[in-house]
Simulated assay, not measured.
Amino acid sequence: MASPQRRLAVVVLAGVLPWVVVTFDGGWYPVFSFGFLHLDPVSFTSLPTYVSRVGSVPPRLTAWPMATLLYVAALATALFDYVSSLDSRIPAGLLFLAGVDVGLLALSLSRQPTILALPVGALCLWAAVWVGYGDALLGD
């Protein structure tokens, strides 16, 4: 059975790794749970800063803040699980759903001409479910 420390570590790691790698004719940039990184010139825009600049989240990007909210809820439940006992299906389910939203975000971005968005974060979030909570979900 995975320890609460291991579960918390994989949840944190899944949130700090890039969620979507967006490629286009002029280059690429990573999108994280909390913002995106411009590479030329190097600068970082947080999700709240982006939303305040555009006024509201464009329809094609609504999966991004939803995935972040699901991830934050999963992190909170993983923290709670660390200090006390919790049903492991709760953070596992939240991580899985966050991965689905990351996949939807990549799909939505890829529908634009000359853009390919790779949902690497969906794989990271689902791997966190398996590594951190797989034993509990399988009943071992």
Rank of each mutant, 00 (worst) to 15 (best):
P65N: 05
W28V: 12
T49K: 06
D40V: 15
G15P: 04
L107I: 14
L47Q: 05
A14W: 00
D87H: 14
Q112N: 08
A78M: 10
T114Y: 12
T45H: 06
F34H: 07
F80W: 10
H38C: 10
S43D: 11
R111L: 15
V54M: 04
A98W: 00
V16G: 06
G27C: 11
V72E: 11
S84C: 11
V51G: 05
M66Q: 11
V31C: 05
P65S: 07
A106L: 07
D101H: 13
I115W: 03
S52H: 11
Y71M: 01
T49L: 05
S56H: 13
V16K: 10
H38S: 09
L75E: 04
V20A: 04
P30G: 01
I115H: 07
V21A: 10
T49A: 14
A14E: 01
L94T: 07
L94S: 09
P30S: 01
T77H: 10
F44M: 12
L105G: 03
F80C: 09
W64F: 05
D101Q: 15
T49F: 08
G93R: 02
G27N: 11
L94Q: 07
T68R: 14
D101L: 13
G26E: 14
A76N: 11
V20N: 03
P91G: 06
L105K: 06
S110P: 04
D81W: 08
G99T: 04
L86A: 13
M66R: 14
F96R: 13
F36P: 04
T23P: 08
Y50R: 09
A117N: 10
A14L: 01
A76T: 14
A78W: 10
F24M: 08
S88I: 05
G35P: 00
V16P: 02
P48Q: 03
V31T: 08
R89M: 10
A92D: 02
A74E: 05
Y50M: 09
P119N: 04
A76K: 12
V51I: 15
